[in-house]
Design a protein around this nucleic acid. Structure first.
Lengths: 342, 342
DNA sequence: CTGAAAGCGCTTACAG
DNA sequence: CTGAAAGCGCTTACAG
C-alpha cells in the first residue's frame, strides 16, 4: 500500500489525475500549483477546476523530495509553557510567515524527546532550518553543534561556536547591580537559577549572576562575602514555598535579585505569609518584565523579546538564502525598569 | 538543484551511495534501516559500517512518500503558553513515543496561523494523525470538520460531529454549584470566559457556567436573578486589574465562581489591594487545580489532565490502526477540592 | 536471504 | 507556452 487511502478506501488524487481531467500535462499542473505566470489563462482555469472537482491536495513530501525544500522552519525550545517562549515564538513566526515560511514547534519537554532531537535523521533536520531557543548545545551535544548541515541559529543563548542571537545577560545583571538598594551590614541574596536537568539549561542565569556580582563588588565596593546564592526552581510554586520558609538571619533590610519575575512574584507572596514585605522590609528586583510585573509593582529588567524573535528569524532566513558567510553573534540590550519593590 | 547540498557544496549521501559502498543492493540497505531481521549479519555489518562512514541520514520525505506513513502526529492548540497545555502535550507525547510515534506542535497563536491550519494541503494534514486541543471546529471551520481524511481526535472540547475526549465541564460546573458557600440576600458572580477571538474558544467555559447555574437554581433554590456573569480575559493580569476595581454593591459576603484558577488568583490579589479578602469577605472557587493553587489555598476543581492526554493519544492510535469504526465520545470526570477560599 | 525494478507524487531542465 | 521524461530517495512485492 503506497498510496494514501481515504475513508471509503478510495485513493487520494495525485497531480496525474488532475492533469488527466484537465487535459493538460503534469508539468502544467505543477506550474499552476506554483503560480508560474507562463501558464495560459485558459489552461489555468481548467486545472483549477479539476483541482476543485477532485478535491486535490498536493503531497508535501513529494514536493519536498523533488524540490529539496520544505518552506518550513523548526522552532525548538526546552518548554513552551511560559510567556517568554510564547511571545518569542509568535514573533519568530510572524517574520517567517511574511517570507513564505511556516513553522512547527518542538518543545523538548522530556529527556526522551531530547534524545530524539539528537538523532540526525530526525524530522526537524529535514525542514529548511532551525531556531533553537534557550538551550545550550554545549551541554546537550558531544560536539557542541547540531547534528545537521541544515542552517540553524541559537536564540537566547550566547555561544562561541554556533550562530546566535541573545540578550546581553551580563549587562542585565550589571543593571540590577547598579540599581538595587543596598543596606549597611546587610546581605544580598540571589534567587533562582536552579535547573533540575542541566541538559536543558541555557546559561543565561549564570551570566546574569556574574554581571550582577561584578557590578556590586567592583563598582559599588560591596563585600563579596555578603552575597549569597540561593537555588530555587523556575516556578511560582517553588519560589512561593521558598519565600514561606526563608528567614534572613538579620533584623534589618536586605536585598534580593530574583533571576526571573516569576521567581520574584512567588517569593514576594511567600514572604507575605510571614508578614515580610517589599519594599518595607527588603528590596527585590526581578528579570523579564512579564505581563503581570507592572501590576505587582515589580522593579525588573525588561527583555526585548519580540525584537529577539524577529532578528533571529531574519538572520536564519539570510543564512538559508546564503547571504551569510561569517559568524552571527548578535546581542540585544535589556533595560532596567524601576517600580515599587526596590 | 534537486539534491540536498551541504556546506562544502557536496551532496548528501543517499541510500544508493550506501549500497554501493557496502556492496549490496538498495533493498538490503533499506531492510537494515528498518531492522528487518532477514538480513544476514555479515551484510548488516557492512551496511552499518558504510552508513557510519558516509554519515548517511535517511531522507524522511522520501520515506514518507513511498511508505505513505510519517510516524508523526500533529498536536494543535490555540496557545501553548500555559500549564494546562504543557501538561496535556507532555502526556500525549509520552503515549505516542511508547508506540513509535513522534509529535510536533502547532500552536495557533494568530489568525494568520489559523488560516494556514485551514488549508487542506498544510503540512499538518500530511502527518499520520492530529490531536486538536481546546478548539471548537464548529467555530473555526465552515463544515465543522477538519479539511482532511486523516484520522484526528479533538481533546478538551465536546463535539457532536467529531471524535472527541473531554472532561465533563457541565459536571464540573455542578460541583462548584454544589460546594460554593451562599449568603443570604447576596449575589453570586461568575468570573471569566471572555475570549478576545471567538474562533479560538472551545466552549468549555459556557458548559461550566450552565452546570453551575443549573445546580444553583434547580437544586439549591438560588434565585437566578442574583447570578451575574462578569467577562474577564484568561490571564492573571486582566483578572488582577478587574479585582482591583471591582466593587460589589453590597456590604455583606458574596460568592464567586472563577472559571479558571489563573483568573481566581489574579482576582484575589486584585481584591487584596482593596483590603477585601477570601474567605473573610467573600467565597471563591476556581477551576483547574494548577501547580500554585494549593499554595494559595484556592478551592477548585481538579481536572485529570494527564489522563485526558493519554486517553486521547491511545484513541488516536487506535483510529490510525483502524481499530475503530464507531464514534468516539469519551468524557472524564473532574473532582472538587476544598481548600481555604470557599 | 538478496537483487532488480516498479512505484510513490512531485519538480525541472529540455525540446519543440 | 506546453509536454515528455528524468530524477529526487525511499519501500516493497517479486523472482530466484
Amino acid at each position: 500500500m503506497n498510496r494514501f487511502v481515504i475513508k471509503g478506501g478510495m485513493q487520494m488524487p495525485s497531480i496525474k489525475d488532475v492533469a488527466k481531467l484537465a487535459n493538460v500535462s503534469v508539468g502544467t499542473v505543477s506550474k499552476v500549483l506554483n503560480n508560474d505566470p507562463t501558464v495560459k489563462p485558459k489552461n489555468r482555469e481548467k486545472v483549477l477546476k479539476a483541482i476543485k472537482q477532485l478535491n486535490y491536495v498536493p503531497n508535501i513530501h513529494a514536493k519536498s523530495l523533488s524540490s529539496g525544500k520544505t518552506k518550513m522552519i523548526s522552532i525548538v525550545s526546552s518548554t513552551l509553557g511560559d510567556e517568554f517562549h510564547e511571545r518569542l515564538g509568535s514573533s519568530i513566526d510572524q517574520i517567517l510567515s511574511e517570507n513564505g515560511y511556516d513553522s512547527i514547534f518542538f518543545p523538548l519537554l522530556s529527556r526522551e524527546r531530547l534524545k530524539r532531537f539528537s538523532n540526525p535523521s530526525h524530522f526537524l533536520y529535514q525542514t529548511d532550518g532551525l531556531i533553537v531557543s534557550s538551550l545550550s548545545l554545549t551541554k546537550m551535544f558531544e560536539d557542541k553543534t547540531l547534528p545537521t548541515s541544515k542552517p540553524y541559529i541559537l536564540v537566547d543563548t550566547r555561544d562561541a561556536l554556533n550562530d546566535c542571537v541573545f540578550i546581553d545577560n551580563y549587562y542585565g545583571g550589571k543593571l540590577v547591580g547598579q540599581n538595587i538598594k543596598l543596606y549597611e551590614n546587610s546581605k544580598v541574596y540571589i534567587l533562582g537559577g536552579y535547573e533540575p536537568d542541566e541538559a536543558f539549561s541555557s546559561g543565561v542565569f549564570s551570566e546574569r549572576i556574574i554581571g550582577f556580582i561584578d557590578e556590586l563588588v567592583n563598582n559599588r565596593g560591596f563585600n563579596k562575602k555578603n552575597i549569597v546564592i540561593m537555588e530555587v526552581g523556575l516556578s511560582w510554586k517553588e519560589s512561593y514555598e521558598f519565600g514561606k520558609r526563608f528567614t534572613p538571619n538579620q533584623k534589618h533590610k536586605f536585598s534580593i535579585f530574583a533571576l526571573s519575575d516569576i521567581i520574584a512574584f512567588g517569593f514576594i507572596e511567600g514572604m507575605k505569609t510571614q508578614g515580610i514585605k517589599a519594599p518595607d522590609n527588603y528590596s527585590i528586583i526581578g528579570y523579564d518584565d512579564l505581563s503581570y510585573s507592572e501590576d505587582i509593582g515589580l522593579s525588573t529588567v525588561k527583555q526585548p523579546i519580540e525584537e529577539l524573535g524577529k532578528l533571529s528569524a531574519e538572520l536564519l532566513l539570510k543564512k538559508i538564502n546564503n547571504k551569510f558567510e561569517d559568524k552571527i553573534h548578535k546581542s540585544l540590550m535589556p533595560k532596567f525598569i524601576e517600580r515599587n519593590t526596590n
